[in-house]
């Protein structure tokens, strides 16, 4: 598993080499300057182009001037101590922060060539392209089939029952769940185990064929075996989707991601190939965090 990922990571890194290093010198004593990110935050194969992003909760500035590119078909992991803004930043990518009244996002956030925060843009279209998996498995209290079929149904992706059946089967297969549930598609989803529920949520997210899947600590409520299954799944999905994953587990970030971004108090401190971040971090704060000096 890990080996394969690292290979992929290296390949990606090789292809993406024209990555601009913003700051080469290693800053001293773990201080962080706003808007300065060490490592390689930019890519020429960007799926997301995020520039000068700031997020405010009322008066409180939760994200401070972050610029980052997320490349096509890469798995990027956001790590950092609690409250560093990594989930907030993730939620900007499909405007999940919209439902929080006091939340305000500034800067330029582009998905391919569309402006995510264009006030005229309907979030429905955006969220059909950018799917999301949450921290706690949250299947709808309906049948397994209905859970997966919900997205295609509301977006009008399948007009006939047969098409819908096919989408449901394919999604469940991709999520590695088909063999476990094919005989009980009508059973209620809340009766499944936590790991199965989370994989069902992933199947539900990919049923609408999104281009990007955002995962907000998808394994934090799962046991190690279920976690391993979900990680395996992420590796498989990375062939066809861009995946952004927030995680508290550095081992997980190391296992599944190509690039890793380290957040600290609302700043994006360092972005680099995962292997580099975990072996020779450029920034002192990153080093302190991954060696467990705080977190």
């Amino acid at each position: 598993m890990t080996n394969m990922n690292q290979t992929v990571a290296r390949e990606t890194a090789d292809q993406d080499t024209p990555v601009v290093a913003v700051e080469a010198s290693k800053p001293a004593h773990g201080s962080v300057e706003e808007g300065k990110t060490v490592g390689k935050p930019f890519s020429d194969k960007a799926k997301f182009k995020l520039r000068d992003v700031e997020v405010f909760y009322g008066e409180n500035r939760a994200i401070k001037n972050i610029s980052l590119d997320i490349a096509r078909n890469e798995v990027i992991a956001f790590i950092g101590p609690s409250g560093c803004g990594k989930s907030t930043f993730l939620r900007c990518l499909n405007r999940m922060n919209d439902s929080i009244d006091s939340c305000r996002v500034t800067g330029s956030l582009m998905l391919d060539d569309i402006d995510i925060y264009d006030p005229k843009r309907d979030v429905v279209e955006l969220r059909a392209r950018v799917g999301m998996v949450f921290q706690k498995p949250n299947p709808f209290p309906k049948s397994i089939y209905e859970n997966v079929a919900y997205g295609p149904r509301i977006h009008g992706l399948a007009n006939r029952k047969a098409d819908l059946d096919e989408i449901v089967e394919n999604s469940l297969r991709k999520a590695g769940l088909w063999d476990e549930v094919k005989d009980r598609l009508d059973a209620t989803a809340t009766g499944m185990s936590g790991g199965q529920q989370q994989r069902l949520c992933i199947a539900r997210a990919i049923a609408v064929s999104p281009e990007v899947v955002l995962m907000d600590e998808p394994c934090s409520a799962l046991d190690p075996i279920a976690t391993a299954k979900v990680e395996e799944l992420i590796a498989e999905l990375s062939e066809s989707y861009t995946i952004v994953i927030v995680t508290h587990s550095m081992q997980q970030a190391a296992r599944v991601s190509h690039r890793t971004a380290y957040f600290h108090l609302g700043n994006l401190v360092e972005v680099n190939e995962t292997s580099k971040v975990f072996t020779s971090p450029e920034h002192e704060l990153t080093e302190s965090y991954i060696t467990g000096r705080f977190g």
Binding site: V123, V124, R127, F134, P139, Y150, G151, A205, V208
Partner: peptide
Amino acid sequence: SIREAAEGMGASKMQVVLH
């Protein structure tokens, strides 16, 4: 969490409420 799940799937406000 249910509301979030539906919103994350791209359900409109109406759909979240009704479904």
